[in-house]
Design a protein around this nucleic acid. Structure first.
Lengths: 79, 79
DNA sequence: CGAAATTTGTTCGTATGTATC
DNA sequence: TGATACATACGAACAAATTTC
């Protein structure tokens, strides 16, 4: 699992964000349920925590995720 | 705010360092109080974090600032 | 009540690659 | 050729909120 392209074009954080986004849109990750923690994602995809963190930031900017400090990051429910 | 001269002569990092230095000398930034973080400065002046970092290095070389890893950069108190 | 574990938040430290002047 | 500057990425330290026991 979690084969990222370390070569050219797409940054790792965006690749990860795209994977999570797909899981949200497929319903694999459900509204108001947590997505994997930054630490978990870092392990999962073999990246640094900060890179996982950037992926989460991307998802927040895409309005797919909201974050609660000390608790986790969650799938944003539909309007 | 924070209009830097992207044209000729003075490097961006030195321009930023000069701005911070002026704020220190005016008392706007006080001894043992933090100066803006590298990330903050990067946003503020529209430069890369590494460029902000070079500005901080300049200030350290001028003995106006000291840096503590994981905490921040601070105005160096008078002798 | 408190201590520990988990999780996000923020900061500086470092390295590589690319582009521009 | 060298200095400047940007983007990405990993590492390390510290801080704060939350949960669990």
């Amino acid at each position: 699992m979690a084969d990222l392209d370390h070569e050219g074009g797409t940054p790792l954080y965006r690749q990860i964000a795209d994977i999570i986004a797909a899981q949200i849109e497929s319903g694999e990750l459900q509204p108001d349920r947590p997505i994997p923690s930054e630490t978990r994602m870092a392990e999962e995809y073999g990246v640094a925590r900060l890179t996982a963190r950037r992926a989460v930031r991307e998802l927040v900017e895409r309005e797919l995720v909201y974050v609660v400090r000390g608790k986790g990051s969650f799938v944003r429910p539909e309007e």
